[in-house]
């Protein structure tokens, strides 16, 4: 499995005993880690059957559901944090998901592959859709239908009325400070309702 450089950063933002919703929780390791190290309580939403099984095996509360439908099951301000880790780009209606995150949680954390990363730009310049560590699929079988750059995501936050609290672009575990939208491969945003 791909190493999740964003998990460490996300974990550092979440205070002990927070209530967390992890959208597209995969095998549940982020929630399991947060529960073990920070006493965090929460739920994961996951659609893939094998991932649901893996999440159960990791001892997390996992709810098998379509993400957008799953979000609708939660009341307003149910959670301290709602996490969407490397999943936004696969959402049918990314804007609606962001709005829903702000409804059910006090704060949202979103991570996504930065389409503006220089290698991706180079691939495009060379005449091809990018394939990289963060975007491992070919164009014809990718689940990633809504790719964006770091700047694009900033625009969406403005549009849905989200105040950005923290914004990092990382590459292989390190925060990129110089030309982040060009040199960073993974955008990590923390935001709340303005």
């Amino acid at each position: 499995m791909m190493q999740r450089y964003d998990f460490e950063l996300i974990s550092s933002w979440i205070p002990e005993r927070s209530r967390v919703l992890d959208l597209g929780c995969g095998d549940g390791v982020l929630l399991a880690g947060l529960a073990a190290t920070r006493g965090v309580r929460g739920y994961g939403i996951e659609i893939d059957a094998d991932n649901v099984l893996a999440s159960v095996a990791h001892g997390v509360n996992v709810i098998q559901s379509d993400l957008e439908e799953g979000l609708a099951a939660f009341g307003d301000d149910t959670f301290d944090f709602v996490i969407l880790s490397q999943t936004l780009q696969a959402m049918r209606n990314a804007e609606n998901v962001l709005t829903e995150m702000l409804r059910v949680g006090r704060e949202g954390i979103v991570t996504f592959p930065n389409f503006g990363y220089w290698r991706h730009r180079l691939d495009i310049a060379g005449g091809h859709m990018p394939v990289s560590r963060t975007l491992p699929h070919a164009w014809w079988n990718t689940p990633n239908i809504h790719l964006c750059t770091v700047k694009d995501f900033e625009d969406l936050c403005r549009k849905v009325g989200a105040e950005i609290l923290d914004e990092r672009v990382i590459h292989e575990g390190r925060t990129v400070r110089v030309l982040p939208n060009l040199l960073g491969s993974l955008g990590v945003f923390r935001f709340r309702t303005r």
Partner: peptide
């Protein structure tokens, strides 16, 4: 979930 219980759901 609304009453804050630990729950796992598989379909």
């Amino acid at each position: 979930v609304a009453s804050n219980k630990d729950v796992t759901y598989a379909e």
